[in-house]
Amino acid sequence: MPRPLWNAASQILMALGYILLAIAIPGSLYIGSIVVGICYGVRLAITVPMASEVFGLKNYGMIYNVLILNLPLGSFLFSGLLAGILYDMEATTTKTGGNTCVGAHCYRLVFVVMACSCAIGFAMDSFLAFRTKRLYSKMRALKR
């Protein structure tokens, strides 16, 4: 099975994990966190070898660094900016001047946005799988 399809499958499962986190039923925090964590691990394990298969090893160091750049960049954009802004929108101002929010609604919109971004990632991974179908069929033929 081509690696881009594994990435696409992990994106769909990750979107389901974020939806579980957004609906906030009892126990969904644990299950959703486990699903999202496993899917992140799958993506990290598959993306780097897939890049070497698709782009080759000539400029692998630069390609690897660009791929790994998604971790701090995504953390800053989604956790720092998006989650902070959306939390502040949901929070109520206290008498001391701070913001507070208690309950599942505080991060619900963040999880919905993350699920939507996973759906976009699924579409992109599916497109990549379609584009690299010929490459992976050639690789299978060489292994035989």
Results as ranks from 00 to 15, higher is better:
residue 126 S to A: 13
residue 32 G to S: 04
residue 126 S to E: 10
residue 70 N to H: 07
residue 33 S to F: 13
residue 129 A to T: 07
residue 111 F to M: 12
residue 67 L to R: 04
residue 42 V to G: 01
residue 84 G to Q: 00
residue 89 M to F: 11
residue 57 L to W: 09
residue 107 Y to P: 02
residue 103 G to T: 08
residue 83 A to E: 10
residue 105 H to I: 15
residue 7 N to Y: 03
residue 69 L to N: 03
residue 101 C to N: 06
residue 69 L to E: 09
residue 8 A to V: 14
residue 120 I to V: 15
residue 107 Y to A: 09
residue 136 Y to P: 14
residue 51 A to W: 03
residue 45 A to L: 15
residue 29 L to A: 06
residue 69 L to D: 07
residue 139 M to V: 12
residue 1 M to T: 11
residue 26 P to M: 09
residue 123 A to K: 01
residue 100 T to V: 14
residue 61 G to T: 13
residue 60 Y to F: 13
residue 43 R to E: 13
residue 32 G to A: 09
residue 84 G to T: 01
residue 120 I to G: 02
residue 43 R to L: 13
residue 27 G to R: 04
residue 36 V to S: 09
residue 13 L to N: 01
residue 68 I to D: 12
residue 15 A to I: 11
residue 13 L to W: 01
residue 133 K to V: 15
residue 35 V to S: 02
residue 109 L to D: 14
residue 66 V to P: 03
residue 27 G to H: 06
residue 139 M to K: 03
residue 49 P to K: 07
residue 121 G to F: 04
residue 42 V to F: 04
residue 80 G to L: 12
residue 62 M to W: 08
residue 31 I to C: 07
residue 124 M to V: 15
residue 10 S to C: 08
residue 51 A to P: 04
residue 46 I to D: 08
residue 83 A to H: 02
residue 76 F to V: 14
residue 141 A to S: 06
residue 18 Y to H: 06
residue 67 L to W: 07
residue 143 K to C: 12
residue 24 A to P: 07
residue 53 E to M: 07
residue 118 C to Y: 05
residue 21 L to G: 04
residue 51 A to K: 01
residue 53 E to N: 06
residue 114 M to R: 05
residue 19 I to E: 00
residue 33 S to Q: 14
residue 122 F to W: 13
residue 71 L to E: 12
residue 93 T to Y: 01
residue 116 C to H: 00
residue 32 G to L: 07
residue 124 M to P: 05
residue 25 I to T: 05
residue 67 L to F: 11
residue 89 M to S: 10
residue 58 K to W: 10
residue 113 V to F: 02
residue 50 M to G: 03
residue 135 L to C: 08
residue 9 A to T: 13
residue 88 D to C: 02
residue 119 A to M: 08
residue 137 S to P: 05
residue 49 P to T: 12
residue 126 S to Y: 12
residue 70 N to Y: 07
residue 41 G to L: 13
residue 75 S to G: 11
residue 36 V to L: 10
residue 101 C to Y: 05
residue 80 G to V: 10
residue 47 T to A: 11
residue 20 L to P: 04
residue 56 G to Q: 02
residue 66 V to F: 06
residue 129 A to Y: 09
residue 133 K to D: 15
residue 71 L to W: 10
residue 5 L to E: 05
residue 79 S to L: 13
residue 10 S to I: 11
residue 53 E to S: 06
residue 56 G to S: 03
residue 84 G to H: 00
residue 83 A to F: 05
residue 71 L to M: 10
residue 13 L to Q: 01
residue 37 G to T: 02
residue 17 G to I: 12
residue 59 N to Y: 10
residue 34 I to W: 02
residue 81 L to E: 09
residue 15 A to V: 08
residue 1 M to I: 13
residue 107 Y to F: 13
residue 78 F to G: 05
residue 103 G to E: 11
residue 143 K to D: 15
residue 98 G to A: 11
residue 12 I to N: 00
residue 119 A to P: 01
residue 127 F to I: 15
residue 25 I to M: 09
residue 112 V to K: 00
residue 78 F to T: 12
residue 104 A to D: 14
residue 24 A to N: 11
residue 89 M to E: 15
residue 119 A to Y: 00
residue 15 A to L: 09
residue 43 R to I: 15
residue 51 A to T: 11
residue 123 A to D: 04
residue 25 I to N: 03
residue 98 G to D: 14
residue 40 Y to R: 05
residue 17 G to T: 09
residue 48 V to S: 08
residue 55 F to K: 09
residue 11 Q to S: 08
residue 46 I to L: 14
residue 113 V to W: 01
residue 64 Y to W: 12
residue 1 M to W: 06
residue 60 Y to R: 07
residue 16 L to I: 15
residue 10 S to R: 03
